[in-house]
Design a protein around this nucleic acid. Structure first.
Lengths: 293, 293
DNA sequence: CGGAATATTGAGGGTCATCAAATGTCGTGG
DNA sequence: CCACGACATTTGATGACCCTCAATATTCCG
């Protein structure tokens, strides 16, 4: 049952420079150069090929550990080399809201730039390998390298757009559409970093999914079960298999529960009559109902 | 009934340079220098005092006009000198979501940096005076002026944080708390730009408020009416008077509608008995109920 | 003055939060 | 190795809240 995205990253990193060897600490340290970091961030890195002037330290975290906390002094940006995390904002009432699930190639910590303190906290959901990017150093290099500067503005702008999409999702999509979009987004991100986009394990709990999507864990669970029932996905605990990605992409709302119940009753009747319908496949009529409106 | 924030801005701007006079078009053009723009954005502008090398053009828009549309090629950032706008994102299903209501001193258009196309559209809600900031020019000045560069990163980071707060609001606050926070935010922003924070006119419709807060216009209207009923505010169409800012700041949920109905019945009974309770003042017990949990 | 847009308020029904119970999973220590 | 407890997940029942539809009043503007 285990699928690829639970395995360790196979990304190669540059050998540790002399400083790392000198440190000799028990903590596992590796170093990446500018070229590696740019590749990870999908920034054109032509000008940095063979550049060994700048090195960025890696740090490992285990599930549950915090990379940074809200209010902590800001000086680093972070790039995920492997593993899964959550970024959480806590409001003045103590409400926690998950803002993102960073994974390989994602940058986080940007929110600290403005007030020089992080406003959110980042927590590892699995074993993680994180690259530390001192912001002042990055900005300084950017000042002499227009491509990097543009890329840095671009990354911030991209994150802004991602959050706008999240606002739009929370503000105007039904719960089913949010869960569907969440699955599609995970699928696309897994594909982009070399894992399967069809079969994967969820790095987060139902509670975290629900929190991220603005619903309770029960609603998140029920919605996944409904998708499973309709044959759009197969879900068992953390493992997901996507049968109909396109239906998930275009889904706006499920057929009214009335229709779903009738459908379920038909199924039950068929089962009672000892007729076994094809496993996990939604009827064509049911798919049409979902696509409409 | 008219209050200050409906009046024209009294901000002075520098005289138009010769170019503007030469244009001689019927459109009303003025110019601001770097110092003015920094002041408007609340950026330390010390290094730009007396700087007349850079000029930024003003453009006027009337209510309903678009400043930019989604998909349009990006080259400008915009700073509001006076007036009110809305920034709207439209998703792949055609859902519109209002992301912000820019007003004096606010920067918008940042979302265009990443893909070189605006992803949202900006629409004037009232007569507006907008300053055009060519992004490449701003970034170039930033390269030689660390304060401006830092400020630019800071502005983007601040906007990121604002959107995170919006996500948290949509994901974890009750409708009443969202409306309350919306009013508090408007109040604080009006105060910051020199208008009254207690009495003001809403620049947007109920539909726009509801859309912004992720609810229907009816729910937005009803919630404002409930606040009015409780004496937290007085509301009549677009005009707002805030009686109890602190209650709005700490409000999490209204007392259950059952209790509200009883309260209303008591009021009605009192009125029938020809006893007139002090206008618009909620009872102490009612306030306690609101603050709790 | 009349028509369109805006705002208010009511009635009814659907969706989702809440409370609850049962089952499954995993890490830890006996 | 297994038993235990803590946590995660699923599923059901119930009711509050909010959306939808609808009617009316008010404002704005040509």
């Amino acid at each position: 049952m285990s699928v690829a995205n639970t395995l360790e990253s196979t990304t190669t990193v540059t050998a540790a420079p002399s400083r790392a060897a000198a440190s000799g600490s028990r903590t596992h340290k590796i170093w990446s150069n500018m070229h590696d970091v740019c590749n990870l961030l999908r920034i054109p890195s032509g000008t940095f090929i063979g550049d060994d002037d700048h090195h960025f330290q890696h740090v490992q975290f285990k599930a549950g550990q915090r990379i940074h906390t809200a209010g902590q002094a800001f000086d680093m940006l972070y790039v995920v080399n492997c593993g899964f995390l959550k970024s959480v904002m806590i409001d003045e009432f103590g409400n926690e809201q998950i803002l993102s699930f960073p994974m390989k190639g994602d940058l986080f910590g940007i929110d600290g730039i403005h007030t020089k303190k992080y406003t959110s906290e980042a927590v590892a959901l699995s074993s993680c390998d994180i690259i530390l990017i001192p912001f002042s150093k990055f900005a300084a290099i950017g000042r002499t390298n227009p491509i990097l500067e543009t890329a840095l503005y671009g990354l911030m702008s991209r994150e802004l757009i991602r959050e706008q999409g999240m606002i739009t999702m929370l503000g105007s999509l039904t719960v089913e559409a949010r869960v569907a979009r969440f699955l599609v987004s995970l699928s696309e991100r897994f594909s982009a970093i070399g894992y399967s986009g069809k079969a994967f394990n969820l790095p987060m709990t139902r509670r975290e999914i629900g929190n991220y999507l603005g619903v309770t864990l029960e609603t998140a669970s029920r919605t996944l079960s409904a998708f499973n029932e309709l044959g759009l996905i197969s879900v068992d605990q953390r493992s997901i298999y996507i049968h109909d990605l396109n239906a998930l992409k275009t889904l706006r709302r499920l057929p009214p529960s009335r229709a779903r119940i009738e459908q379920a009753e038909k199924k039950a009747a068929a089962a009672a009559a000892n007729y076994v319908p094809s496993q996990q496949q939604p009827s064509a009529t049911m798919r049409e109902q979902m696509a409409v409106v």
